[in-house]
Design a protein around this nucleic acid. Structure first.
Lengths: 221, 221
DNA sequence: TAGATTGTTAATCGATTAACAATC
DNA sequence: TAGATTGTTAATCGATTAACAATC
């Protein structure tokens, strides 16, 4: 099988940085800044200006020599690359405190993703409304997914149930998972996409830094 | 100034992987597995066995030729490296839904970090008890930090307030920040540590993948 | 036009992988 | 001891940076 990679597939690192640029550029845009050059931007982002130009030029020339980058235009282009206009739809599985927090947050709307369904096994939340959406029992997943376009399943349930539920939902046709559990989700389906938010790993990284870098320090990245 | 780097400082990438190994090894340990070799482990973790051996050998020889790694021993060693036994103490600033979710989660206890204080400006939560801890007004930060050892400030407040509050808390002696806001925290203090959980960036990465990799797929890492 | 700054190629650097000798 | 698997060095690969020609 051994899928051949397109020659110029940008690395994950580039995409992560693009998302970061996007976030920052939006702030600048809100503040009324209209243009920026790679040097000034690189200082704000703590990367080299070379890297910014390289990253952007993976996807095309969005700047203008002698001028820099028009922020509004650049925002549009990066948004396009990252799929902000794709109107993806997500369901959240596991409506505990974290699920509720995420359901209620602006993170989806800001990226053009809409939450269309909430699911939980607990009677204490089923039927309740969170962020304007009714919480359903997972038994309804099959019908719900067949009747609604669902692109992303957000996994905010317990680690133990996560894998089984992900398999089920994947079998129903949902191919992308935003995983907040501490488990690694490994699906048989090779086209399934999993993006992890492993908070625990992040916390441990910080603890490591406290212990080792405390004398050196760094608030880069 | 230009701080000199110690020659063999392991890269952030190594530390992140170590945290990931740690998480996975604990699961294996709970399942009663006592030993593992780099090859088997590499298949579980979707990395090469070379990488696992390299990563571990940044810190010392934790294995035994011809045998592999004793999981309990390895867990202890990685835990030590990552500072699990340091008994770090954290305060959470911003007790909205996300702050409450994190305060109530097992993420701290599992990594040897204890939450000792909660702060929020809103009267609707001040005085209430979340995860067994009383929520206080930020006015009390100064006294609280002077009376308690506080290693980490978790930022789950709004992006707008985040920077100012971080400056204040840093001035009071807290040097490590676990940042959940969409802002980049840039402190004047060069020894301040900031670890970001940028959920929005993560979601965008997923959206990018949906749009571009859908035909190729990958649930690696 | 002259100045500025991009787009892009080439050089450097670091991280990953492969290979194998050491050793349990 | 023989077999297995680590620890570690050397080779490869990819990502970052530097440099500069193109061009607005």
């Amino acid at each position: 099988m051994q899928q051949e990679k397109k020659p110029n597939t940008p690395s994950t690192a580039v995409i992560k940085r693009l998302a970061r640029y996007y976030r920052y550029l939006r702030t600048l845009h809100e503040e009324g800044v209209t243009k920026i050059n790679s040097k000034d931007f690189s200082e704000l982002m703590n990367v080299t200006s070379s890297q910014i130009r390289q990253d952007l030029n993976c996807f095309g020339g969005f700047g203008q020599q002698g001028y820099g980058y028009n922020i509004e235009y650049l925002l549009g282009k990066i948004g396009e690359i990252l799929g902000v206009n794709e109107q993806y739809r997500a369901i959240i599985i596991g409506i505990g405190r974290l699920g509720q927090a995420i359901a209620s947050s602006a993170v989806f709307a800001k990226r053009g993703v809409s939450v269309c369904g909430l699911f939980d096994i607990s009677d204490s939340v089923i039927g309740k409304t969170v962020a304007g959406i009714e919480v359903r029992h997972p038994d309804e997943l099959e019908r719900f997914i067949s009747e609604n376009k669902v692109d992303i399943a957000v996994l905010t349930l317990t680690a133990k149930e996560a894998h089984r539920v992900a398999e089920t939902v994947n079998a129903l046709g949902v191919n992308a998972f935003w995983n907040f559990t501490s488990t690694e989700i490994k699906l048989n389906n090779p086209s399934a996409l999993v993006e992890n938010v492993h908070m625990g790993d992040s916390l441990m990284t910080l603890c490591y830094q406290i212990r080792h870098n405390s004398e050196e320090g760094s608030n880069a990245q």
